[in-house]
């Protein structure tokens, strides 16, 4: 029997899993729908909590897949189970027979324009977390005015929001917001910066320190309350309404820039593939793992494995750990079958 392993998605998760499986002697075929490897990480500037540059993390991941066969700009056309192997037809005309398929299809950012009341795509001064990373990397975004005096960050955009279809917490947005708020303060020392949060979820190592630093060293103002609506003033600024739930009073502030922390949802591209062989998804839209504690990398369909954000929002370290765990799970699967 061949030792083919199909890995779907060339973000950090797919890269790390491919590298590990390759080292373990498997014949990895990695596909990526975009024209470059790296997924969201390739579009990010810096990473919380220390502010490491994204490319410093991505480059070693890419270097490590040395020897792995990978196809860019390639999608799955069809996938079906033939006896004990998956027959995967790719958009580049290649067909792969693979005993194990690893889904590292990751997440899509919540489309912020769906929260119509925040005016993304309508008001000139409203951008998303992803737009801001691009701005950090390129220094260019017409929506960021030259010398912003007041900047706001809205946590939980499309997260913890049943009406937006996503009841869950996207886990990484709080830390991202705090990181980005500090970066903006460093760029624009005269600006007042506000973070509108419902709960601050500073769960990871070093995150609480980052939060404390944001308060003390950067003077970021944290307002406990969700932004309810945004509108544009005559001067093209944005007027933001929220409740300061700590004082129990409605609050308004006029801002030069509003950043929406778009959350995570299961990637459409992953869902499309999942539907071809009826991979189960839970209420939150993410793929259902075989168990919720002991077998997080497995699907209830033999030979299908998961790693990363396709089974729920995850930080980058979480994702990389899952990639390694998935490699071990796949290795065990091959050994058991043989």
């Amino acid at each position: 029997m061949n030792k083919n392993v199909m890995v779907i998605g060339g973000g950090p998760c797919g890269l790390e899993a491919s590298a590990q499986l390759h080292k373990m002697g498997y014949n990895v075929i990695l596909i990526e729908k975009e024209k470059q490897l790296g997924g969201h990480l390739a579009k990010w500037d810096r990473l919380f909590p220390e502010g490491i540059e994204a490319k410093e993390v991505l480059q070693p991941l890419v270097d490590n897949i040395n020897g792995v066969k990978y196809f860019l700009d390639t999608e799955v056309v069809s996938i079906n189970l033939l006896d004990k192997e998956y027959n995967v037809i790719l958009s580049n005309g290649i067909t792969v027979l693979s005993k194990a398929v690893l889904m590292t299809s990751g997440f899509d950012l919540f489309p912020a324009e769906k929260k119509e009341e925040y005016g993304y795509g309508i008001y000139d001064r409203v951008i998303t977390n992803a737009d801001l990373e691009k701005f950090f990397a390129t220094g260019k975004d017409p929506r960021v005015v030259e010398n912003p005096k007041r900047i706001g960050f809205v946590h939980c955009v499309g997260s913890r929001d049943e009406k937006a279809g996503n009841r869950y917490c996207s886990k990484v947005c709080c830390a991202t917001a705090v990181k980005q708020a500090c970066e903006m303060k460093a760029l624009f020392p005269d600006a007042e910066i506000f973070c509108f949060y419902m709960d601050l979820r500073m769960f990871g190592r070093g995150y609480e320190d980052m939060y404390l630093k944001a308060q003390k060293d950067y003077g970021i103002r944290f307002i406990r309350g969700r932004v309810s609506e945004v509108s544009e003033t005559l001067e093209k600024q944005v007027l933001v309404k929220a409740e300061d739930t700590l004082s129990g009073k409605p609050l308004k502030v006029t801002l030069d820039l509003l950043v929406l922390m778009a959350g995570m949802q299961n990637a459409k591209s992953g869902i499309r593939i999942g539907e071809m062989i009826s991979m189960k998804r839970s209420d939150d839209g993410f793929f259902t793992t075989k168990g919720s504690i002991l077998s997080l990398q497995e699907c209830d369909k033999a030979g299908i494995f998961y790693a990363g954000a396709c089974t729920g929002p995850k930080t980058l370290p979480d994702t990389l750990n899952e990639a390694r765990a998935a490699a071990v799970s796949i290795h065990n699967y091959f050994n058991k079958e043989n």
């Binding site: 119509e116 005016g119 795509g121 000139d124």
Partner: peptide, 10 residues
């Protein structure tokens, strides 16, 4: 105001 954005919603 980005008029096209409104048109999209409309």
């Amino acid at each position: 105001m980005i008029y096209e954005g409104k048109q999209k919603i409309w």
